[in-house]
């Protein structure tokens, strides 16, 4: 198996917590993984991305080649489109619906959603809303997103649950359960809407 994922968002949105759970899931199950991320200047409200590669074979490059990604997982709708040159034919775009508007020339929301809906394979999910209403904590939106992407990631779902458990172990059972609930809520949405 081999899955190449581009995680996208805006600096400060926390895509790295998604990467951390995925990384833990891969490593604890003896899969190879590489995950390149952005630090420094662009973290200040700029566009950020992380290249996440998981495979049962040796992984060489830290970067994903163009047209190489199986999945673009974006926590912000405009950001998912920025990385389309990296998407494989038949690859999936899973994106959050809530825009992060910190620039004056942000596109019209209708136009933006139309672009996303024109893609052959996409899941457009309001992760913020699901996190608040179904999980009971807005901050869990990142793991709603991971759940929504999980059907397209070629590793068993239980690995992801274990990854979250390992990541939040120190923070207590309640936090673990909340994030796992978020994972399930996201997955359910994707299964119903893919």
């Amino acid at each position: 198996m081999k899955t190449d994922i581009i995680l996208a968002g805006v600096g400060g949105q926390g895509i790295l917590s998604i990467a951390a759970a995925l990384g833990k899931a891969a490593l604890d199950n003896n899969l190879n993984m590489k995950q390149a991320e952005t630090h420094g200047m662009s973290q200040r409200g700029g566009d950020v991305q992380s290249f996440m590669r998981i495979s049962d074979e040796e992984i060489f490059s830290d970067l994903i080649p163009k047209k190489g990604a199986d999945l673009i997982l974006s926590v912000e709708p405009m950001e998912c489109l920025r990385y389309l040159p990296y998407l494989k034919e038949g690859g999936y775009v899973v994106t959050n619906k809530t825009p992060f508007i910190n620039i004056p020339n942000y596109p019209e929301i209708e136009e933006l959603e139309a672009s996303i809906k024109a893609l052959p394979n996409y899941v457009l999910i309001d992760a913020d809303k699901i996190a608040k209403e179904e999980v009971g904590n807005g901050r869990a939106f990142n793991f709603v997103m991971l759940g929504a992407a999980s059907p397209f990631i070629d590793i068993p779902f239980e690995y992801l649950e274990d990854g979250i458990r390992a990541l939040f172990l120190k923070k207590g059972e309640d936090i673990v359960n909340m994030n796992i609930k978020a994972l399930h809520a996201g997955r359910k949405f994707a299964e119903d809407n893919k």
């Binding site: 409200g45 990296y86 910190n102 596109p107």
Partner: peptide
């Protein structure tokens, strides 16, 4: 070289900014 799909025009640059 791969002929990749271009980034749609409506995607605006998002430079870093002071918080």
């Amino acid at each position: 070289c791969h002929t990749d799909a271009p980034t749609p025009e409506l995607v605006a640059p998002r430079p870093p900014a002071l918080c």
